[in-house]
Design a protein around this nucleic acid. Structure first.
Length: 375
DNA sequence: AATGATTTCAACCGCCCACGT
DNA sequence: TACGTGGGCGGTTGAAATCAT
């Protein structure tokens, strides 16, 4: 049906905001709240359209915005949530308090996307570009069935969880939560009973809902489709709130990770099997302090070439690290082989477990309960 | 120091959805 | 049910900053 412009563009200012305009907007909102964005500019004495005012407020002037460099934890969260949610920046932003969707989007496009690409990971699908790596291990077929079941089950569950988080922000209907959870479980059980022959394909479920084995869940919302599932061993979410308190050494190891270093694909390949947990320690703690809110305070330091390498490795290894947060919640999936298992298949399975668990932790630790809007 | 290339990010644009009438 | 409106979202743009030569 088309849409009329949000405002009459004639005579309205565009482009960068001046400090005076910022001050007017801030003062007005602080006193009155934004109310109707369309009506706001006139009331506030601004020659801007309401949409521009809203954007300026939400992306820049809002007092609860954290600006500046993204921490490693934030980077990991973005990457994992992007694997889960795709380019749904606002949904991702709900898991990163004080960061705006616009900022996250920009950071993804300018930093993380390129970094993943350099690591040999397709930033769109979160699949390794050379996924032959995944199919040549002896003994892997033994785990394929379990993996596919687990992947399907978790995918279904994650869809429900992600949905749940969003819904809970809009309204707190516990009954809906129960419905979604049970629906996810039921659908997943049905999906698992029809597992295909290719665990590989199931693990890396494509972005289209038609290709998703969990598409049965879309009865309640088609947008829940998981757009891309990252190879599970690639990323271990170290800093999720449920298990982060003891991991500051690992976190600090890669803080200040220098962007666009020479990330070796070999690193990724290595990590796909076994990454020694000790490899994530670089002893850079001196340069970072942590607040009680788990936020980092960066101290100035020169980053020499050695540091750059170490930092980049830190980022890489934190992405690849599979040593943290062993979780028992998936005990029905893999027959109990431990992290000490030597076979590539076992590691592969274990890594999947960790990846899914980390995302579950991430979703479960959603900040949705404490980030109420100011206005 | 000058210049061109590249990167960053604030801001805009157009589309979509929810809601009211 | 159809339509109008407001708000939100994701993609894109372009000026400014930074880097490389």
């Amino acid at each position: 049906m088309g849409r009329s412009p949000c405002c009459d563009k004639v005579g309205l200012k565009k482009g960068p905001w001046t400090p005076e305009e910022d001050q007017k907007l801030l003062a007005y909102i602080e006193e009155h709240g934004h109310g109707s964005w369309r009506a706001l500019p006139i009331k506030a004495g601004l020659q801007r359209c309401g949409k521009s005012c809203r954007l300026r407020w939400t992306n820049y002037l809002r007092p609860d915005i954290k600006r500046g460099k993204f921490s490693l934890q934030e980077e990991q969260t973005i990457i994992q949530l992007h694997a889960l949610l795709g380019n749904r920046w606002s949904a991702i932003a709900t898991h990163l308090p004080k960061r705006t969707d616009n900022e996250i989007k920009n950071y993804w496009n300018t930093h993380l996307k390129k970094r993943l690409a350099k690591m040999g990971i397709d930033p769109v699908t979160h699949k390794p570009k050379n996924d032959a790596l995944l199919s040549t291990h002896d003994g892997q077929s033994k785990n394929a069935a379990n993996l596919s079941h687990m992947a399907q089950w978790e995918s279904a569950r994650l869809e429900a969880e992600a949905r749940l988080v969003r819904e809970s922000k809009l309204r707190s209907h516990n009954s809906l939560i129960n419905q979604l959870t049970s629906a996810a479980a039921a659908a997943a059980a049905a999906a698992a009973s029809t597992s295909s022959s290719s665990a590989h394909q199931l693990l890396f479920m494509k972005g289209q809902s038609l290709e998703s084995p969990t598409s049965t869940l879309t009865t309640y919302n088609s947008e829940n489709v998981v757009p891309g599932i990252m190879p599970s061993s690639m990323i271990e979410f170290v800093g999720c709130s449920g298990a982060s308190s003891g991991d500051h050494q690992d976190q600090t190891a890669a803080i200040n990770a220098k962007e666009e270093g020479d990330v070796q694909v070999q690193d990724w390949k290595l990590g796909f099997g076994n990454v020694p947990s000790s490899s994530t320690h670089f002893g850079l703690h001196d340069n970072v302090t942590w607040t009680s809110n788990n936020e980092q305070v960066h101290h100035d330091r020169g980053i020499g070439s050695v540091d750059e390498v170490a930092d980049q490795e830190g980022f890489t290894n934190l992405l690849l690290n599979n040593s943290v947060d062993r979780d028992q919640s998936m005990s029905d999936g893999g027959g109990g082989d431990s992290e000490n298992g030597g076979s590539a298949g076992s590691d592969y399975y274990e890594d999947n477990k960790n990846y899914w668990n980390s995302i579950l932790n991430l979703v479960n630790s959603s900040p949705s309960h404490d980030d109420s809007p100011i206005f």
